[in-house]
Design a protein around this nucleic acid. Structure first.
Length: 307
DNA sequence: GTCCCGGTTT
DNA sequence: AAACCGGGAC
């Protein structure tokens, strides 16, 4: 017996727990376009879009994106600025993720001849792909992943398994992997994420959604639905990233702008302490991130989205 | 204000 | 370990 089995139901129950969740998922779940494909490129696009963005808003962007760049080769051949402008236009947030996705497409074409690798370890080498996304793509495209651990899964495990609450730094990854039926990452990861997203939300909906784990869940039995703290984000209004977003949006609209025209479009109080020096620094950071290019011409600095 | 199927950089 | 990154919906 391994250590993590201490956190899990007895072997006799483990099979029932697994079956119950999979049956619950198969009996009815949300239909998303990316759940009807096993194309790694399409899966990756959906996963990157879904990071910190509401799924309901991803659907339209996902369809538009694949309409414009149907294959990984198409995306790799695109100008980066086009991808960034698309990202901004569709309000997908965190424009860096557009550059990561474009970079990753280039890696797949250059290093893998346009065919995605199928292991989490290789997928994690792609720009913008960390442990979460690597396992998601390996699972949903190739049925070859480990257990996915996101905030939804953590919440499910934290509530369901009593012993986790006694642990200072819960080994979510080990527990999640021990719980997942070996070789069934596609259905399992879909199912447990669906459970966290639909039934085991911050405000639990156990009975409404017919949670399959009620008879076994520690939280359901005790009424203590405590969940792990999610780090609260700094406020967006007035933040640096709000102004970064405005720069990208303006350049997606105007192709190219000198600082003197860009500034007033970024903030109405452009000038003074937040004048040209402030804007230069903002633009320099965006250039470092590969989002924009700056060029000196006619004694002024002109800025455009990266080609 | 909080939340959202995280990753990179320092 | 912590800061940083967008923006719409609620």
């Amino acid at each position: 017996m391994s250590d993590q089995s201490d956190h899990l139901p007895a072997d006799a129950d483990l099979g029932r727990v697994r079956e119950a969740l999979v049956e619950w998922y198969e009996a009815g779940h949300r239909e998303f376009p990316w759940r009807r494909t096993d194309d790694a490129y399409r899966i990756l696009v959906s996963e990157v879009m879904s990071q910190q963005t509401q799924l309901s808003r991803v659907e339209e962007a996902y369809a538009d994106f694949l309409d414009r760049w149907p294959t990984v080769a198409d995306l790799a051949a695109a100008d980066r600025g086009e991808v960034v402008a698309f990202w901004s236009d569709h309000s997908l947030g965190y424009n860096n993720r557009a550059t990561y996705l474009h970079e990753a497409a280039g890696q797949v074409v250059d290093e893998y001849g346009g065919e995605f690798p199928d292991s989490p370890a290789e997928l994690e080498e792609l720009m913008g792909v960390g442990p979460y996304t690597a396992n998601a793509v390996a699972s949903f495209a190739f049925d070859n992943g480990n257990a996915v651990v996101d905030t939804n899964v953590k919440r499910v495990l934290y509530r369901a398994i009593a012993e986790i609450r006694n642990t200072e730094d819960p080994p979510y990854e080990e527990i999640a992997n021990a719980l997942m039926p070996s070789g069934e990452s596609r259905i399992w990861n879909n199912a447990i994420m669906e459970l966290g997203g639909v039934a085991c939300q911050k405000t639990p909906r156990c009975d409404e959604e017919g949670c399959p784990w009620r008879e076994w869940c520690h939280a359901y039995q005790t009424g203590d639905f405590t969940a792990p703290d999610v780090p609260t984000q700094p406020s967006f209004e007035g933040s640096r990233r709000q102004f970064r977003g405005r720069v990208v949006r303006a350049l997606g609209e105007y192709d190219e702008l000198p600082l003197s025209k860009l500034g007033p479009r970024v903030r109405v109080d452009y000038g003074g302490d937040t004048g040209e020096a402030w804007l230069r620094e903002l633009v320099a950071d965006l250039a470092d991130d590969g989002l924009v290019d700056a060029e000196e011409r006619d004694g002024e600095t002109h800025v455009r989205l990266t080609r």
